[in-house]
Design a protein around this nucleic acid. Structure first.
Lengths: 338, 338
DNA sequence: TTCAATTGAGTAATCGATTACTCAGGAGGG
DNA sequence: CCCTCCTGAGTAATCGATTACTCAATTGAA
């Protein structure tokens, strides 16, 4: 492997000049720029990123912290982020926390050790780790979820309130009146906002919110099964279900199937998160689609802005809110059978 | 950030001694070991991995090269690999090639630049990149796919022949006789082997292979739709379909649904790759499940072995073949209707 | 008791880049 | 014509670790 020293020798110049040419720093005579570039080409030289990073105290690596990379939402977000990383010459390091706080802390420590160029966090609990400290060392962007404990950290979010509101309103307009909510853990901001959107829709339609029409799960499939079962087998059963995320929708759908209820006639069905299976089952499922891929891209853009110039200002916080999309399918439309 | 120099000063020793303690190298007096460790604790010192990597000419980073991280198979494989990386103190860098050769080459160059500790490749076309050269620089493991051009590279594979053989035999035993194959691109080893397994099963059952019962796709959903449509609408239509991967199965299933054919009575259905939706649709789909997560773990183990000792010997090639599992569900069993 | 071998620790070179500092030479003003 | 300022390039320090080399002290054998 050729080093910068080899290039300098080959070009008959000093390493300082070679470095200046490579980084477009300082002013170098055009003739020498050409000589350096020729030498680089002749030797097939590529700068060693480790030497560079050591000196610069910064690595062109971005970290991505997620609770579950196998979930389609995070996989898609990851994909969007990865595309932007590649374009901008960044490596992307993957951190799967699996909701484990200790792992999360460990990864953040690694990010500090390696002096990452940025960190995108879509993780479980942001209460325990001291993100403010981290933010002094590198740009940090929260995606999908925010924490009230960190109002001063950049974030890219989805308008969860609107998403839930539009889906529930849609169900109401299709004649469903007792709409059950399969909610997520209330300490996760996304779950909280979706619940609020659900409530607003009912109130705006002139229907009160009844506590026994809300069952709380943990965002995983089994809890969706349990919650849905409870809601539709109650004394006064729900006549429609709105599920707060895609994983619980899997469980909820299985529960409805096992109980032999027919969608959409006996029960309306809609959920947050789009997924392949929701178009393959009969009837297909109405969803609130999140722009996951775009979320990843937007997070990348914020990292780049924070890195290049100090814009937005250190004191200023960037909050991007992307709009979800209601995709109406058969499961929420009475009379539009299979 | 404390450096090794600070630790040396704090302990009243030289950096060499501190380094020896940290790496368990050379022999250091027990009393001094304790002094060094105390100093490390007092300062909260963590070694800078960049300085270390520069000197050692090796980074504890693994690269993972896949064509599509959003595909559940690769996502699961990635997850298995990531788990092992974490346990063994490695970082995992993600490389999504999207079947693009140029991207693939670019990423491999990056792996060389950063002096990665290993590379796991589950990528499209291994014909263009010179993997032999790469292998001299770092351990390389192929997963899922192999290339005849590189017989001397370690690989972790699935027994595709057996998987296809058992699924097709199962269909035959359930009375289906004209079994159509939705095949993958023949230049990809997995597709080739699955086709061979399909053929063997037919031959062993005393039925010849008919060319018009094989339609070739490209491993993506739309091609599955087209291939399935062709097979079941032919003059002499297939009475069952075996699909060579999960993505094409999505298309094939949609085609069957659009044509209004009833599974399993009018048409038997089975596919490679398990996925969530295959248990949610009516009837549920019989699949050949691949141990994707374990594939990732096995790849990690090979990297570790290559790194630690030279075992297997440089001349020796490690080939792990994992067994797939036939999961029988309703779609392949006549008379067991919805 | 003396000398070689071994042990334990320090000094300084090194990995490969960036950049503060230095300095020669040319331009421009007085 | 001389002095100052500016430009362009080189020298060498630096980032933070590892390790070859060196050397003093201790052990063991003759």
């Amino acid at each position: 492997m050729a080093t910068i020293r080899d290039v300098a020798t080959e070009a008959g110049l000093s390493t300082a000049t070679v470095s200046r040419v490579m980084n477009n720093n300082g002013s170098v005579d055009v003739a020498l720029v050409a000589r350096v570039n020729e030498a680089i080409d002749r030797l097939g030289y590529r700068a060693n990123p480790l030497g560079r990073a050591l000196r610069r105290k910064r690595t062109p690596i971005w970290g991505f912290l997620a609770s579950d990379i196998e979930a389609p939402f995070f996989a898609s977000l990851l994909h969007g982020l990865e595309g932007q990383a590649l374009i901008n010459g960044k490596l992307l390091m993957l951190c799967n926390t699996g909701e484990d706080l200790e792992r999360e802390r460990q990864y953040i420590q690694t990010a500090l050790d390696y002096q990452f160029g940025g960190l995108v966090i879509a993780a479980a609990s942001m209460t325990a780790t001291e993100l403010d400290v981290l933010q002094d060392e590198m740009p940090v962007v929260l995606v999908d979820r925010v924490s009230a404990a960190y109002p001063d950290i950049d974030a890219v979010l989805v308008n969860n309130h609107l998403g839930a509101y539009s889906a529930v309103t849609h169900l109401l307009e299709n004649g469903y009146r007792r709409i059950g909510l399969v909610a997520g853990p209330s300490d996760i901001s996304t779950a909280h906002e979706r619940r609020a959107g659900y409530c607003s829709a009912l109130v705006d339609y002139g229907i009160g919110v009844t506590d026994d029409l809300v069952a709380t799960g943990d965002f995983f499939a089994p809890s969706g099964y349990a919650a849905a079962t409870a809601l539709v087998t109650a004394d006064q059963p729900a006549d429609a279900l709105f599920v707060a995320n895609g994983q619980m929708a899997v469980g909820a759908y299985a529960a409805v199937r096992d109980l032999g209820l027919s969608i959409p006639d006996e029960l309306g069905f809609a959920t947050f998160d789009d997924d392949l299976w929701m178009t393959l089952v009969e009837p297909s499922i109405t969803v609130v689609r999140q722009p996951a891929y775009e979320l990843g891209e937007a997070a990348a853009h914020i990292l780049l802005r924070r890195e290049d110039v100090k814009d937005p200002e250190p004191g200023e916080v960037a909050r991007h809110i992307l709009e979800p999309e209601l995709v109406v399918r058969a499961s929420s439309c009475r009379g539009v059978g299979p």
